[in-house]
Design a protein around this nucleic acid. Structure first.
Lengths: 272, 272
DNA sequence: CTGTTTTGTTGCGATAGTTGCACCTAAATT
DNA sequence: AATTTAGGTGCAACTATCGCAACAAAACAG
């Protein structure tokens, strides 16, 4: 009477677990997919259940089975659906702008959105110098990337505090100071139009980031540039201005009418 | 007693129908998503069912709800999963090569794979001249695009005939002639390394296409260039040679060792 | 090539999640 | 304020799924 709180949409949850598992660590060694037994064990479920689920998923094109190894991988349907996402549209429009940045600075550029407490990278544009890791579809905590500051720039202070408290290991002594610093950073974004952070997606690079607005003037994305070499602080701010201007142009390309640019200020979104 | 042939994985099918519906016609007017009732009616299902399904899908990030309009759209999770697809990796590697083509010819370039009887476009690289329609995630029948010929180039004749018969409106008088012509086209791909077609993705342009091979030497994708202006036949073949060379380089970038280039010949895949 | 182990699939009764209806709330519309 | 429409919920009936175990098929080993 205590241990069976109903589990609605259990099927979907299982399917998603499978897909997430197939998505893998993103590493490459698992490129040839996974077998039924391995998945079943990893998920602590019945082989039969996994077998049947995978067959159904394959029928829908969500996964596909290597004809020779008989292992499963993520399927084409995911690609087709994702292409119809609004995120995809955003990526399409943003790509040329990011490219411009990579050309100008010869540093990697990213397009990110906020997803809960995480910053999700939608697009990573490599610089000419290195074939860097692909960050697309990868999430990092908001507190890390400069993009996090750009994305939260116009949240109400109280909501920012809440989020920080939820994310930071609570009880940390420096938390209060960190909060204050964060709020100051956000104020800087509002006034200067860009954020600067010592850490970007990975910890080997600093970053600058600027907010991108949709047609209503709400911040919905951020452009970042990761500076891999230890550049002078001055140069970071120099780049920041350029990134901010690029973000503004991208916003315009997304349909932002100049008048609306200020309208979104402080409007926030419903707490979701 | 006659109308209840078991419906396994009915839940998944319903979810996929919903997602497909949300994916929409790809048009833009539906950018702000769809409401529960509309979806329920369109799918001929109970409102409650759709409501619950959408809530579950939202929990998994497969769809997201506009906080203000309360309408549903495809969600970020699709993007994140798709980014981990092998198709995505292919797109990443191929993008610079396609870009080179668009720069060289100032025409649009595509990366396509075969999916059943259809050619699925994974990447469309716009030329500088027009902001053309985005073809990513869109499928067209094999018989249309030049890419279809490139992708089938090394199938056994018999399998090609079967596929053509399945696709073509059967009973057509010209079918036999069409078959012969097709097989000749495929032979041309094998000898010259590229295909030429009067129709590319849309019917306003001709196209050239060349096969891309994976590390085993099997044809797994195709690069195409759509020629929008009515160019001289000569120029098409000129471009074909370049596209073929680019496809070869891309294959190498994908790990194809020169030795394996011929190994894949005629090996075909299990009929899937 | 034959025996053995591992991996994947299927049948079937019991279980448990889903269905559909009616009802309800909230928001838009008049 | 009244009416219409969209979206969500409670609950009993239903039916798809679960898990077990037996089976089939590869992979492996000798």
């Amino acid at each position: 009477m205590s241990d069976k709180p109903p589990a609605p949409s259990a099927g979907l949850r299982r399917d998603m677990e499978i897909l997430e598992l197939l998505a893998g660590h993103g590493d490459d060694r698992d490129a040839d997919g996974f077998g039924v037994s391995w998945i079943a064990q990893r998920l602590d479920r019945e082989k039969s259940q996994v077998s049947r689920a995978l067959r159904a998923l394959e029928l829908e094109g969500m996964v596909e089975r290597d004809p020779v190894t008989r292992r499963y991988r993520l399927g084409w349907r995911l690609f087709a659906l994702a292409a119809r996402t609004q995120h995809s549209r955003l990526v399409q429009v943003a790509a040329p702008f990011l490219r411009r940045l990579t050309v100008a600075f010869d540093e990697e550029a990213y397009l990110c959105v906020l997803r809960g407490n995480q910053v999700l990278t939608l697009l990573s544009m490599p610089s000419s110098r290195v074939y860097h890791r692909v960050w697309e579809g990868v999430s990092v905590p908001v507190i890390m990337a400069a993009a996090g500051r750009a994305l939260l720039a116009e949240w109400e202070d109280e909501r920012v505090r809440q989020l920080l408290r939820a994310v930071l290991p609570s009880g940390l002594e420096g938390a209060v100071a960190g909060e204050r610093e964060w709020l100051a950073d956000l104020a800087h974004v509002r006034s200067a139009g860009y954020a600067v952070s010592d850490i970007e997606l990975d910890d080997s690079s600093a970053g600058v980031s600027a907010p991108v607005r949709d047609h209503r003037g709400l911040i919905t994305a951020a452009i970042s540039v990761a500076v891999t070499r230890t550049a002078a602080r001055e140069r970071l701010h120099e780049m920041g201005a350029v990134v901010a201007e690029t973000a503004r142009e991208l916003s315009a390309a997304l349909g932002l009418k100049p008048a609306a640019a200020e309208a979104g200020y402080r409007s926030g979104q419903p707490s979701g």
